[in-house]
């Protein structure tokens, strides 16, 4: 889940217009950019889609950390293609946000200024090759849980971006699981790395869904607007129920002594992650927050002359024929 704790904006619109808008959403209609929408809907979407886009872009970094160290040519190509997809997904999402009247550069600057967030998960380091497996298996797995229902979200451009993204992402989780399978069935050192990766990524993956929001006013509004499709707890439960049997198949141990199948609810009981840690990571105190933002800042600053230079050339070309006449 790449958008966490998105605060919905209060809206002060005409109640009649609001009711008509809600009726359209309830009827399953898509809202398109130039149509009337409550200010709160627009602002919440900008924040959510922007955060989602930022997560894709910052999410390139932990996996990109291993592109130069991938152990075979094929693994290198697969990983590069996957991380490239994330750049593409960020691009699609920024475009969806732009239809709401904010520019990509504005969103980028808000990210770099620390005014917009990205998913907490990308502030954890990738220390061994097994982490690349764990990121694909767990992090993409968690993201897909959230993104599949978002294909039905009420805002047209967001929905269409999610459809494209889900189609392209279908190989991402599989490649992660495939790496984990090789590692879990490999040498003693590989098995150790696989278990260690699961140990380190399990709770941060559970945090991706955000703290329980069953009583949250913000979530209720976002769910009514169909820009949030499930509660955080629903998605987290679904993720655990899906992932535990996969870990068992791999012969790995989920690092939770209290994990039990609960026949009554038809799902696993499991331990909550450390929410204090989660809030510290969001505040900027995760293991890699500083490095991640510094990398994005450097790319932005170092790239300025390229972006400007290409614009300058295009401007010259446009004016050239006129100057010649």
């Amino acid at each position: 889940m790449y958008a966490q704790m998105v605060k919905s904006e209060a809206t002060q619109d005409d109640p009649e217009a609001l009711a008509a808008f809600q009726a359209r959403i309830d009827a399953g209609e898509k809202i398109e950019p130039k149509e009337w929408m409550p200010e709160g809907y627009r602002k919440t979407l900008i924040r959510q889609i922007g955060q989602h886009a930022h997560s894709e872009i910052v999410g390139q970094l932990p996996e990109g950390n291993w592109i130069t160290r991938a152990p075979t040519l094929e693994r290198k190509a697969i990983l590069l293609a996957k991380v490239q997809d994330e750049a593409g997904h960020g691009l699609y999402l920024y475009c969806a946000a732009e239809t709401l009247g904010v520019s990509r550069d504005e969103l980028t600057e808000a990210l770099l200024a620390g005014k917009m967030k990205y998913s907490s998960i990308f502030n954890y380091p990738t220390l061994t090759w097994a982490d690349i497996g764990a990121v694909g298996w767990l992090v993409d797995g968690a993201a897909i849980m959230n993104q599949v229902p978002l294909q039905r979200t009420s805002f047209g451009p967001y929905s269409r971006a999610m459809i494209r993204i889900c189609k392209e992402e279908s190989f991402h989780q599989r490649q992660g699981f495939d790496i984990m399978r090789k590692m879990a069935n490999g040498t003693k050192a590989q098995r150790h790395m696989a278990q260690d990766a699961l140990n380190r990524f399990w709770y941060p993956s559970l945090m991706m869904f955000g703290p329980s929001d069953k009583d949250s006013v913000h979530s209720a509004q976002s769910m009514a607007w169909k820009i949030k499709m499930n509660t955080n707890d629903e998605l987290r439960q679904k993720f655990v129920d899906q992932t535990v049997p996969q870990a068992e198949y791999l012969g790995l141990t989920v690092p939770d002594p209290d994990l039990r199948w609960n026949a009554e609810k038809g799902g696993y009981d499991f331990s909550e992650p450390d929410w204090t840690e989660f809030f510290e990571v969001l505040k900027g105190n995760g293991p890699c927050n500083a490095e991640r933002l510094a990398a994005r800042q450097k790319a932005w600053d170092d790239g300025a002359w390229v972006r400007d230079g290409l614009m300058a050339h295009a401007a010259k070309q446009r004016s050239a024929p006129i100057a010649a006449e």
């Binding site: 872009i57 390139q60 970094l61 990109g64 592109i67 130069t68 290198k76 590069l80 293609a81 991380v83 490239q84 750049a87 593409g88 960020g90 691009l91 920024y94 990398a295 450097k298 790319a299 170092d302 790239g303 300025a304 390229v306 972006r307």
Partner: peptide
């Protein structure tokens, strides 16, 4: 060229370099 992935001047170029 793969070292650029995630660090290019603009998203469109990041994708092109990876290709």
């Amino acid at each position: 060229v793969s070292e650029w992935c995630g660090h290019a001047p603009v998203l469109e170029e990041d994708i092109a370099l990876a290709n």
